[in-house]
Design a binder for these strands. Structure first.
Lengths: 172, 172
DNA sequence: ATATCTCATGTGATCTTATAACATTAGCAG
DNA sequence: CTGCTAATGTTATAAGATCACATGAGATAT
């Protein structure tokens, strides 16, 4: 049940602001971590896949596939949709990236390696996305599923609302 | 915390099977109920809106906007996307219909009138969708939101997995 | 009754998101 | 080096959603 307040508030600012250096370190650490996990699990973190992950880590917010594709092209990779979607498929399948269904957008996982049942808080004002953990099998949904004999394999839990930063701006 | 086992199992069959008569009654009752609520609340359940609701009740499963649009055209209504989207917007806004984000599809509300925090169970084999209630403010997500100072306005809770009917078919 | 205002609908164009299909290339196993 | 498998490149198209503007239908006020 972790929440990333940080990601809720730093979206409107350019991805690289005062904390540029720190963020660079955080990106490269996350990339190194991903490389390690791929090596361990026999997964191939190819250049496109690595670049897509790097983009999402760098931006630190939810990006649409076509935005990612633009950035891929800028970096000299193929510029057709499947290039981005295939890399995203790989990253999502292996838990490096999550898809935010409400936004049809993708965001780097904030808790890589851990057991994944992500939940997202999405600010409708600034579009910032924070990742938390959810415990789907516990609450009402889990009970309903058990009652119905439905086998849950994956859950989408997304809350839409107003982040603290935007709430402060609204009523001062 | 209600669950609709029915809607999980009757999707592969044509929408109108053995239970045709019963289902017709259930559709017309739901329509009458909707008309009553609209009258009470000063909402206009116009012909297109009513037809879209009728389609979703009749089919009793999640339909994409363009499928609905095709059925609208068959029924003599306009055939351009905004016709369907506008009717769906109205129905969703007023709680007669829900959008299933995972499927980019729409389904008639199974618990109209009640307080809405729907949760869905989506069978990845047969695409059937069952509606249950969720209690977002309770579990892990609610706690994370409170901790972060995030104001939840709406939640998307969708579980993907295998419905009992499809599970039975898989391992007999 | 009719002018007018508002909300709803019709329509064409466009935009965004996602996938299908097939050719090409890279890395690895024999 | 050969042949296999996985990944990438590229073209085309499907599927989902919105914009902008014209038309129509109902209510309200004169």
């Amino acid at each position: 049940m972790t929440s990333d307040l940080a990601s809720l508030s730093d979206k409107e600012a350019p991805a690289l602001g005062f904390h540029e250096h720190d963020h660079d370190i955080c990106v490269s650490e996350a990339l190194a971590e991903a490389e390690k996990r791929c090596a361990e699990q026999g997964l191939r973190l190819t250049p496109v896949r690595r670049k897509v992950l790097e983009i999402l880590l760098q931006e630190h917010r939810a990006l649409g596939a076509y935005t990612i594709l633009d950035l891929l092209r800028d970096a000299g990779f193929g510029s057709q949709p499947p290039v981005a979607y295939r890399a995203l498929d790989f990253l999502v399948e292996n838990g490096f990236v999550h898809k935010v269904e409400r936004l049809n957008a993708f965001v780097a996982c904030a808790h890589p390696g851990e057991n994944h049942s992500p939940a997202f808080m999405i600010c409708r004002v600034c579009d910032a996305v924070a990742e938390a953990h959810s415990t789907p099998s516990k609450g009402a949904l889990g009970a309903a599923a058990r009652a119905a004999g439905f086998q849950i394999e994956r859950t989408v839990v997304e809350a839409e609302g107003v982040c603290p930063a935007c709430a402060d701006k609204a009523d001062p």
